[in-house]
């Protein structure tokens, strides 16, 4: 599972994100100048390697999806740099955008809103193909292959989305994401809108496709058991920052950041005879991203805060091999 991390540094990563910031203006004054900014994503850096699954976890509103959209250029980043296999990507440049959409695709959370209800399944799957200049005959042939790949009968092509269940629709959306043979698919909570009984089918399909086609996933989720099941590495986000990033088993066994500890202690454990003693509950509520705390984003809620936490923002530092944490007291937790 972790085969990528060792060889990762030899070649440039598939996608490298440096200091990504996405700020939204709010509350404009009379002249149209913003009076305040929501810092949805604030200085996020990470990289995704070929064929690996990186999960972004965190509670709602922490900037997971915004990060995903900014990578694709669906939202314009406020600042930061993106490199695809060492090549810079610029969402404002049309050539770079067309490279981005050939290499990166997205699967949305809501399988009902992801497909135009008035468009046949074949047309929906063929849309990225036609937009990239394929003739309709070529697109139709490719659509049949794509339906095979996601396990839907070819006769689905002429049907409308309302004749399919949520799981079947998500298969259609995955087929559409595969159409341009991308190297990276951003999965924005692809199973959280689905029935529990359907989830494993879709997750297995994603894993199977990854094995066959060597696709990398950026898997955005708040379902920790799903994340543990399919990711190679996990990044934990809080209030627009990555607070901890490590390989999956390392993160689940050596949880260092207080926020991650609180997050993971919320996973219910079913182990007879063992009491769940390490339940860590954060005080207070998530601060408004309009008015984030100075210093460490967790400072208002952290049980271990010190004066230094209120002064400056801790950097993401590698504390153990492949395990980075943004906490001033990370070394203490590592003992």
């Amino acid at each position: 599972m972790n085969a990528h991390s060792d060889s990762a540094h030899a070649s440039p990563p598939l996608l490298e994100v440096r200091h990504l910031k996405v700020h939204f203006p709010v509350n404009r004054n009379l002249m149209g100048r913003p009076r305040a900014w929501v810092k949805a994503v604030d200085d996020v850096s990470f990289s995704i390697h070929k064929g690996e699954t990186l999960s972004l976890v965190g509670e709602s509103g922490c900037g997971k999806s915004t990060t995903g959209y900014a990578l694709l250029g669906m939202l314009l980043p406020t600042s930061g740099e993106l490199f695809f296999e060492g090549q810079p990507l610029d969402a404002r440049d049309s050539q770079s955008r067309s490279l981005a959409r050939r290499q990166m695709q997205i699967v949305f959370q809501d399988p009902f809103a992801s497909l135009n209800p008035k468009m046949s399944v074949g047309e929906s799957i063929g849309e990225p193909l036609r937009a990239s200049g394929l003739s309709s005959q070529e697109a139709a042939l490719r659509v049949e292959k794509l339906l095979d790949m996601v396990g839907l009968p070819r006769s689905c092509r002429d049907r409308l989305p309302n004749q399919f269940s949520g799981g079947q629709r998500q298969r259609i959306v995955i087929a559409r994401a595969l159409a341009l043979q991308p190297r990276l698919i951003i999965c924005d909570e692809p199973v959280s809108a689905l029935d529990v009984s359907i989830r494993s089918q879709i997750l297995n399909l994603l894993l199977e496709l990854q094995r066959e086609l060597d696709i990398a996933y950026l898997f955005i989720s708040h379902d920790l058991s799903v994340v543990r099941h399919l990711s190679d590495r996990v990044a934990v986000m809080y209030l627009g920052h990555i607070v901890e990033l490590a390989e999956t088993e390392e993160l689940f066994t050596h949880t260092l950041h207080p926020y991650t500890q609180a997050l993971f202690s919320a996973i219910p454990r079913i182990e007879p005879g063992r009491k769940n003693t390490r339940r860590l509950i954060l005080q207070g509520d998530l601060p408004s991203p309009l008015n984030p705390p100075r210093g460490c984003p967790l400072v208002t809620r952290c049980p271990h805060r010190q004066p230094v936490c209120e002064q400056s923002m801790p950097e993401l530092q590698e504390i153990r091999p492949g395990h980075s944490v943004a906490c001033f007291r990370a070394d203490e937790w590592n003992r």
């Binding site: 669906m74 997205i106 468009m119 559409r176």
Partner: peptide, 19 residues
């Protein structure tokens, strides 16, 4: 999402409006 996706993959504005 389906309109955002169409814009993302570069479907022309006229096609987005009509389709």
């Amino acid at each position: 999402p389906y309109v955002r996706y169409a814009r993302f993959v570069g479907t022309r504005p006229l096609a987005i409006m009509c389709r």
